[in-house]
Amino acid sequence: MKTKFAGAWATFEYLDDTCAAIKELKNAGFDQITTHTPCARHEIDHALGNPQSRVPFATLAGAFVGFGLAVLIITKMALDWILPVSGKPIVSVPIMGPIAFELSVLMAIYFTIGAIFLMILRDTWKHPVPQSRKYKDYDRFMRDRFGIVVACGNDELEKLENIFKKHQAEEVNLES
């Protein structure tokens, strides 16, 4: 985390309340928003303004790396240990197909996994969350509750609390 967290977090029972609160928070100029949901919900994405992930670029890069690697090893090994087969070319392009495909897939998958973790870590770094025991021990986000965490200055806490309460938050916790 960048610094000590200052802000507030609230829990909600209903998804529509959560989305309405997110929209109002955005309109009020709060941009350090982190949400919690028990499963992926498009409604939350829409409320947050449809953020995009850059994971696909890593997948594409992985596919190119795998393809290049396959062509390279097949060519290198074919030239290093020559196995003539019925007068066919020593470095044969058609036979590269299956291996190039498999290695492209394999590398694309590894790059995708790496990208998922790195991008999650980067976003977590950029959007601080409370360090309090109460927040860490709250264990209903993966069960049946929605949550919103907003980082802000101490002078904005009251405004934040009012927005959460207006949208019928179950619990509001201020951390300064």
């Binding site: 928003i33 982190t34 949400t35 919690h36 949901t37 028990p38 499963c39 992926a40 939350i44 994405d45 947050l48 953020p51 992930s53 994971v55 696909p56 997948t59 495909f101 897939v105 694309a108 998958i109 995708t112 996994i113 990208a115 998922i116 991008m119 999650i120 976003d123 977590t124 959007h127 969350v129 986000f141 993966m142």
Partner: peptide, 26 residues
């Protein structure tokens, strides 16, 4: 450390979709 944050779901779901797309021809 998965806690269902929007940042986690965003990259996770996009990665998962790509996994599915890549695994299909496989």
């Amino acid at each position: 450390c998965f806690r269902g944050t929007n940042h986690q779901w965003l990259h996770y779901m996009r990665g998962y979709l790509l996994f599915a797309a890549i695994a299909t021809p496989l």
